[in-house]
Structures are given as structure tokens and as C-alpha cells.
Design a protein around this nucleic acid. Structure first.
Lengths: 343, 343
DNA sequence: ATATTGAATGCAAACGTTTGAAAAAATTTC
DNA sequence: GAAATTTTTTCAAACGTTTGCATTCAATAT
């Protein structure tokens, strides 16, 4: 009544002048408990709003039913789609998701992992930060592995780790995008490349380069400029691209945001899309279907990645001693829209 | 070596033939511990990768350092911005965020809250689901209040609850948006209204209506159509709007997504923006600055809301017995861009 | 030599719950 | 009415850690 201290089993036991064991069993419908006792206790428990202390259970059973999700950011569509996918599968199973955002920082990533381990998280989904990736750090992962806490990589991967991973086939998606542009008849295809070093950037870049080579088209250094993953970062690079002597007649952006930034710059310059310049993005974010013109892009199944990653986790959890990690690669899919459909 | 069971203080104690107390004190740099003992124990602990079991500490201290965030969705820009704001303040303080997505369902919301309480979460940030709101349910909140677990409402509010809240001033934002359109000279301003019943929708709607009234402009029923918060949901309603006898010359969308959907439809119909039709959104999402034309919108400080909500939580946590809940209303701000700037 | 101090360590309880085994109480059987 | 059986309840330990108090042991003071 007065205090806010949660009601415990002991409190109830005192009230009924019985032992905590009896209360516990009554609440859990244990058959050995007298029907009346059970009913009384259950009623009383409901009345006073008893709620089991899961913390004590976690300690006892060494099961926390909580999972860590460590990602560089949650402000992009794709990342939230992945988290939604994880949620869809794992929330109904009773798991709680602890989301940690690293802001691409190694230190934050390290601390997050350490915290999650201390909290006895039962599994960790990790998309490594750029800093970690650049520097090639991996010691902070050792303790996770050593603890045998299931560790599932999402998208950004570490080649040398024997863990499960769920990634999207960025390479072939990029390849298909560029091939499409070539088929349509674009001759000078630029690429707004993501930050160097990240698998995502590099794979798409590789798809771009390999496709050009396949069609015996030159890979012009000056048509490749780095950006980040947001709209803003595409503005200056696109302006530069359009100002060079023999400017590109198509741009393949590392993601939709970047492509939309490029679209904006092109329009400001009075270029018609797709007649004067073709545009392709990557992600198939919801907005891409409704830009004007709508944006050709590569679908990246974020939700599915999240769901597959969940599956990988569950496999590992229920797996035998000699469990072998899986590497899922989901296909990406070219979505052709107006921004590249020059007749 | 063989097992994956985490090393405990007892393990270390056994190794050094001392008591767990000594190990605990050594690890915590307790002054009463012999220097050598301390060093040896600390070294060994590091060597075997000892990591304190926070679960047991949570039980002992009744502090879990975890907070619940219960939101209807995480696929909108605004929601993730809020979460980022919470993160920014609370992660450095050692708090872990448990994100629960309700998909606008009352049942999921109820279960999420119950779970969070069972896990002895120290505070809950809640943006109630549409279903909960529509039905006017509130019993599931009682137990949170009764437990005296700090409960902070975000955006969607319950008038009758004595809790802290952080909301954006939707009303005046909408008012300013419509006033701006009127000032520019638009005469027939339509509104793509969000789902009925939600504070967010209703407040913006009220701002729209009140502004029209202030300027003695008629409120035409047929110029008000419901949408959801995504692009897709704006397509049909906008088509309908543009097909009526005396169509609107401006549209105020409940958010940027909806406005962008409207923009797309208008363009498809060959209308020039802003000459033939003016457009205003709400949110100031990153993309809104880079649509073509760029979208006039109302800035909604999601990150700030998250940070303010954190502050409210901390206030309540450190507050005295007679703590009085606060209601923060952050101003929204009109951002004028091209889509409404008819000369 | 004995009392006094001080440093270093150990004991035991606590947090809330579950659970196998033992004990107690109630019921049945002869 | 006692023995056997069944039903119901309690005991005690466990999960991992911290911490006030007690204890041990050695060193110093008398």
C-alpha cells in the first residue's frame, strides 16, 4: 500500500503463513498443491499485483532471454528493417532485444559487447563499426567467442571468424545495376562509392568495376568519388562529377540516399532524368518508389536479413557440439524504375 | 578450457585457496586487501577473462540499469531519431535500452510492459499504440504507476495520467504551416490527415482548422482525407483530392512521407509545384531537403525529444517523494523550402 | 611475557526464485 | 486403532556477488 517495493513470494508466504516453496508451486500450478491453497494464493497474488522477479530466475537458471544487437547506426531505413526482422522472429519467442548503437566507434563497440556479456546476454547480433573494421581490431570479439555466446554477423563481416553471418549479395546487385545501365545504352557510368574499407562499399564497388570490365568499358578514376550513406554527402561529389570535362551520363549510387542527392543536383543543373543522365540507387527504401522520377534501385531485404539472422542464432543455440556456422547470402534484386529508363 | 561456463568469483577463490569475499574485494580494489593478493587475483582474473555477473548484482542491489522503450514502430525517421536521443544521454550513463515494438497493438504493448516490469526495468519510455489509444485502455499502465517505475510518455499522451511527458507542439507547427500557405496566397488548402484518434493527427488537424478559421477561410470537408504515415497511403487520397470539382491549390500533409506521396501524384498529373499546387509536410526528415522541389515542412526535433525525455526520467529518478511530473512541449519550427514558394 | 594494535582474511546473510528430497498431515486400508 | 498410503507442505541448497562484523595472525608497545 505505502511502499513501492515489488511484492515478493516471501511476502505472500508470510501472509498465508506458509513457505515460499508452496507459494512458488501454487503460482506455477504445481499438481502437488492443494486446490484451495492454490486458488487463494493465485487470487491474492493477482490482487496485490505480484509479478515474478525475472532477474532472480535469470540468476538461477542462467538464462536471461535477452539478446544484444550492436549496430553502427539506427537512422537508416535498412538498419531499422533488420531490427524489425529480428524483432518479428524473436520477440514472440520471449526474447528481449538490447539495442546498442556504436556510431561507428570501436570503443563504443567494445564497451557494448563487454556490457552485453556481463549482462549474460544469450546471443549477439553484430554489424561491426567502420572504425573496428578499418583498424582490423578483433580482440574484443575473442571474449564473445570464448564464452561461446552465439555471435551472428550482419552485413559487415570478418573473413577470419568462424561465426554465422547473414549478408546481402551486394556484389551481384551492383553488377546487375550497372549491367542494366549499360544495356539501356549509358556509356559513361560514374559511381558514388561509400566509405572505403567497408564490405558494403567495396562489394558494390567491385560489382561496378567488374561489370564495366566485362563489357570492355573503361574504368575512369575520376568517375569514382567517395560519399557517406546520407543524402547530404552526395551533393558535392555529384557537383564535381557533373563539372568534369566529359561528364558521366549515368550515376550508380552506393545507396538510395546518395542517388537521391545526385538526383537533386542533376535536376538543379537542368538535366533531365533519365534522358540526360541515368540514376540507380541501392536499398529499395520506401521513398525510392515515389521520387520523381522514381528511382531504379537494388532491393536489399533488410527484414529478411533480420529474420535469417534470427534463424542462424536459433540454429546455433539448439545446435550440437560440432555445430558448423552458416553463411547466408540473400540475393539482392534489381528494381527497374523511371530514373534509368531512357527509351 | 573445456567448458564455456563463465568464470565466477568462486572459481578464482578456489584457485587461490581464499574466500570469495577476498576475491570480490581484490577485484574492486578494496583497501583492506594485501597488495600482492590483489595483484595476483586481478592478473589471474584478466587472464581467464573473468567478467562480473551483472545479473547477480542486479538481484542484490535491485538495480538493473536497464530501461524500456516501447514504441509502435521503428521504421520512421522520427521514431529512430527519438531513440537516438535517448541513447545519446542514457548509454553513456550505463543504461541499456530494451526496445519493444508494438506494431500499434494493445496486446503487444501490454505484454511488453509486463515483461519490462518483470525484468525490473528501472524506467519506461512509452509511446502508446494506436489501438490502446483508440480503445482508451489504461489498466496495463496502472501496474507501472503502482510500482513507481518512472513512466515517461513520448508524443502520444494520456491526458488523465500524472506522468512526465515530452511532446512536440504539433498544433502550432501545423498552424504555422497553414498560415504560411495562406500568406503565400493559396486559397484552397487540403489536408491529408493522419489516422483519427491519435494526438499527433488530431493536433495537426486542429492547427489546420483553427488557422483556416482565423483567416475566415472555409473548412471544406471534402478537402480532408485520412492517410497513414507512409508514402503509399497518400497516393489514392491525393488522386481523389485532385479529381474533385474545385480541387485544392495546396496540400498540407500530416508528415513528409505523405507530402512526398502527394508530390509524386501531383507531378504525374502534370501539375507544377509550387505554381499550380503548394505542398507542406511535417517532420523535416532528411530527405525533405532534397526532393525536387525541396519540401516545405515543419521541423520535429526527434533527437531532442529523446534527450528531454531522458532528462525527465533522470529528474524523476533522483526526485524527492513529492516529485511533480513535468510536461515538456518542444516547439516545432516551420522550414520553408521550394514546394510552397509560389512567387 | 602479555596486552594492544593493525592488517588481512573469512563468515554468513542477503537479493528472489525454484526444486529434489524429506517431513508432516490427512486419508485409506485392514 | 495402527499401519500403509496418499496428499500436502516444508527444508535446504543453489544461482553469483557484496558487505558488516568477526576472526586470525603477526607486529608493536608495555
Amino acid at each position: 500500500m505505502n511502499s513501492s517495493r515489488p511484492v515478493t513470494i516471501k511476502d505472500i508466504a508470510r501472509r498465508f503463513r506458509c513457505s515460499p516453496s508452496t507459494v512458488s508451486r501454487a503460482l506455477n500450478d504445481h499438481p502437488a498443491i492443494n486446490e484451495d491453497t492454490r486458488k487463494n494464493i493465485q487470487e491474492y497474488a493477482k490482487e496485490v499485483g505480484y509479478q515474478r522477479n525475472e532477474v532472480s530466475l535469470s540468476l538461477l537458471n542462467k538464462k536471461t532471454a535477452s539478446l544484444g544487437v550492436v549496430v553502427p547506426t539506427i537512422s537508416n531505413y535498412y538498419e531499422t528493417a533488420v531490427i524489425e526482422g529480428l524483432h518479428t522472429v524473436l520477440q514472440p519467442m520471449g526474447y528481449t532485444l538490447n539495442i546498442c548503437v556504436t556510431n561507428e566507434s570501436y570503443l563504443l563497440e567494445k564497451e557494448s559487447l563487454s556490457k552485453l556479456l556481463s549482462n549474460r546476454t544469450e546471443g549477439i547480433f553484430l554489424s561491426v563499426s567502420q572504425e573496428t573494421y578499418d583498424a582490423g581490431y578483433y580482440e574484443h570479439l575473442e571474449s564473445v567467442i570464448q564464452r561461446k555466446t552465439p555471435l551472428i554477423f550482419i552485413d559487415r563481416e570478418y573473413e577470419d571468424f568462424e561465426t554465422s553471418r547473414a549478408t546481402v549479395d551486394d556484389y551481384h546487385g551492383a553488377f546487375a545495376a550497372v549491367e542494366h545501365l549499360i544495356t539501356i545504352g549509358y556509356k559513361q557510368i560514374a559511381h558514388l562509392k561509400g566509405p572505403n574499407g567497408l564490405t558494403v562499399s567495396e562489394q558494390r564497388f567491385k560489382g561496378y568495376v567488374d561489370c564495366l570490365k566485362k563489357y570492355n568499358m573503361p574504368v575512369r578514376e575520376e568517375l569514382i568519388i567517395n560519399t557517406n550513406f546520407n543524402v547530404e554527402s552526395a551533393i558535392m561529389p555529384t557537383k564535381r562529377l557533373l563539372d568534369i570535362d566529359s561528364p558521366p551520363d549515368a550515376i550508380f549510387g552506393v545507396n538510395d540516399q546518395v542517388a537521391i542527392g545526385a538526383m537533386r543536383v542533376a535536376k538543379d543543373k537542368g538535366l533531365r532524368i533519365p534522358q540526360d543522365i541515368g540514376l540507380v540507387g541501392f536499398d529499395n527504401s520506401p521513398i525510392s518508389a515515389y521520387t520523381y522520377p522514381s528511382l531504379t534501385t537494388v532491393h536489399r531485404p533488410g527484414r529478411k536479413i533480420g529474420m535469417e539472422a534470427s534463424r542462424l542464432f536459433l540454429n546455433q543455440l539448439n545446435g550440437s557440439e560440432d555445430f558448423a556456422p552458416e553463411h547466408i547470402v540473400l540475393p539482392s534484386e534489381l528494381v527497374i524504375r523511371e530514373s534509368s529508363l531512357r527509351i
